[in-house]
């Protein structure tokens, strides 16, 4: 699994962005409920296959990095040690919605199917839009080269209700 592989590659513990040291050992006791876990499945890609990804952080800063096909955007954030506060709190297990990202229309259409389980968590995300996805569920492919993923601004009023 790409995420797990990513975790093993990771050895530092910078505070700017949290690394996921323990996640490789995270048991999936919750699996009996959703019947599925959503780690990304991918192969070890060739170097030349790298996909360029641009993140627009909360402060508007653009961060450009490369990821490998099959990796999720959460994997990319971890591997590249990107400084996005609070991103990926549940470590890609579809239990937090902190990996919420917003895409451009045409990119969004290329991202593939959204499972009910992703949609369930997405519905709780801050600043939900029609082109929102959870970064831990979006996998890179060559056709996504150059994609722009915007980190939604956190909302000052935390009491956003379900009805938005």
């Amino acid at each position: 699994m790409a995420l797990v592989a990513a975790l093993r590659r990771l050895s530092h513990a910078s505070l700017g962005f949290y690394s996921w040291r323990a996640a490789a050992a995270t048991p999936t006791f919750g699996a009996w409920i959703t019947g599925q876990r959503s780690f990304t499945v991918g192969s070890q890609p060739l170097r030349s296959d790298k996909v360029t990804v641009h993140f627009i952080n909360r402060d508007g800063d653009k961060i450009t990095v490369k990821g490998s096909p099959g990796e999720s955007l959460l994997d990319v954030v971890i591997n590249e040690d990107l400084d996005i506060d609070g991103f990926g709190a549940c470590e890609g297990t579809l239990a937090c919605s902190t990996c919420h990202l917003i895409f451009e229309d045409d990119v969004f259409k290329k991202l593939g199917r959204i499972t009910d389980e992703e949609m369930d968590m997405l519905d709780l995300a801050y600043g939900l839009t029609d082109t929102s996805r959870l970064g831990c569920q979006v996998c890179l492919s060559k056709s996504l080269d150059g994609l722009v993923a915007k980190v939604p601004e956190s909302v000052a009023d935390a009491r956003q209700s379900q009805d938005g």
Partner: peptide, 9 residues
């Protein structure tokens, strides 16, 4: 248990 992963953070 997935929710508790945040403990690592």
């Amino acid at each position: 248990p997935e929710v508790k992963n945040v403990i690592n953070t």
